[in-house]
Every structure is written in structure tokens, then in C-alpha cells.
């Protein structure tokens, strides 16, 4: 091929084409839905408060409009929770980690181990209830290239973290 005029044989390059992505834990869907529900509750409170407190004739339509917009946003994010969940996946290779996400706008990010600055395992309260954790991987590429894999069991998250750090260290030595 003319395009890459280097020595490397392209056919033998490891390819990201046929990566087998690992889905995250099923209970993470519940975490996502709870997040959406919390948003819905906040929306309802705002709308109802406005509805009760507005006496002015002129802006009586405001809570109605707000309710309609909120309902639309809420149902969209509910649908997207399901759709997004279906498409979350991660894959480990010998020298990098891949993560895919997104429903309408999909993205796959691949971070080589030898570019990882550090990684950490996080849990927010809702995740703790469901026994889930989040693996965060940081690079020098700034926040846009930082990776956060949610919906892992704490053991799996730690295991991944160990693997990544260990591999990164081995790579450094080589």
C-alpha cells in the first residue's frame, strides 16, 4: 500500500477491527436509571412548585411548557440510558485498553498502557449500594482523553487496575 511507506507489514499489525468488547455488569443499568429518576424527581418538584406558586395570569403557561420540556428530556434520557448501556464495553489487549460508548454518537477510545499516568478505582453512593465501581484511567492528554469505565465489580476494577499498572511498569522497563 502506498499510503504507509514504512517498513512495517500492515497485514500483521494488531487490529482494533475485531475487538471482543466485554459488557459491564447488568446492575449498572439500574444505576443509570436511578440517575435518570433522580433527575425526573427534581424536574417534577420544580414544575409542581411553580404550578402551585404562580398566580399571575400572564405566565400561567410557564409550568405547563416546562413540564412538557422536562417530560421530553426525561423520556429521552430514559431511552438513552437503555441504549447507552447496551453499547458500553471495554476490551483489554496486551498493550492497550479500549472502551466504547454512545448511542447516536458512538466513540471508541484506545489508550496504550505506556501512556497511562495513573489509574484509580472510584465508587459513588449509588454505585456502592449496587456493589459497583468505576475504573478511571488518566493520561497526559488532558480530561478529553481520560477514560472512565463504570459498572465494574470492585474486584474486577481492582484487577483491571493492577493489570494496567503492572503492564505499564513492564513496558517502561523494556
Amino acid at each position: 500500500m502506498k499510503f504507509f511507506n514504512d517498513q512495517e507489514q500492515l497485514e500483521t499489525l494488531p487490529s482494533i477491527t475485531n475487538l471482543q468488547y466485554q459488557p459491564v455488569e447488568k446492575s449498572y443499568l439500574k444505576v443509570m436509571i436511578i440517575g435518570t429518576l433522580i433527575m425526573g424527581v427534581i424536574f417534577s418538584i420544580i414544575t409542581v412548585t411553580l404550578y402551585i406558586n404562580i398566580d399571575e395570569e400572564k405566565i400561567i403557561w410557564l409550568p405547563h411548557l416546562l413540564g412538557a420540556v422536562f417530560t421530553l428530556i426525561f423520556s429521552l434520557s430514559l431511552v438513552s440510558s437503555f441504549q447507552n448501556f447496551k453499547r458500553i464495553g471495554y476490551a483489554l489487549r496486551q498493550r492497550d485498553i479500549a472502551y466504547k460508548k454512545g448511542w447516536i454518537w458512538q466513540s471508541k477510545i484506545i489508550i496504550p498502557f505506556n501512556r497511562i499516568q495513573h489509574s484509580e478505582v472510584n465508587q459513588n453512593p449509588v454505585e456502592r449500594i449496587f456493589g459497583l465501581a468505576k475504573l478511571k484511567v488518566f493520561t497526559a492528554g488532558g480530561s478529553s482523553s481520560d477514560l472512565s469505565i463504570p459498572g465494574l465489580t470492585p474486584e474486577r476494577a481492582e484487577q483491571l487496575k493492577f493489570y494496567i499498572t503492572h503492564k505499564a511498569a513492564v513496558d517502561e522497563e523494556e
Binding site: 504507509f4 500492515l10 492497550d96 484506545i110 488532558g142 482523553s145
Partner: peptide, 30 residues
């Protein structure tokens, strides 16, 4: 493409080409 001094984007290439470029870059980095 993320670097330590910002990102650059190659927009709208065929998926096959995008895969090739990614594979190649990752291979070089790794």
C-alpha cells in the same frame, strides 16, 4: 488523536481507513 498539548481530528474518513490509521498509530506508540 489526543496528545499532551491538545487534540487533532481527522474528520470523515472511511471506517477501514480510520481503523488502519488507529492500528498504525497505536502500534507505533506501543
Amino acid at each position: 488523536i489526543h496528545t499532551a498539548s491538545g487534540n487533532i481530528t481527522i474528520p470523515y474518513v472511511t471506517l477501514i481507513k480510520a481503523m488502519e490509521v488507529s492500528d498504525y498509530l497505536l502500534y507505533k506508540v506501543e
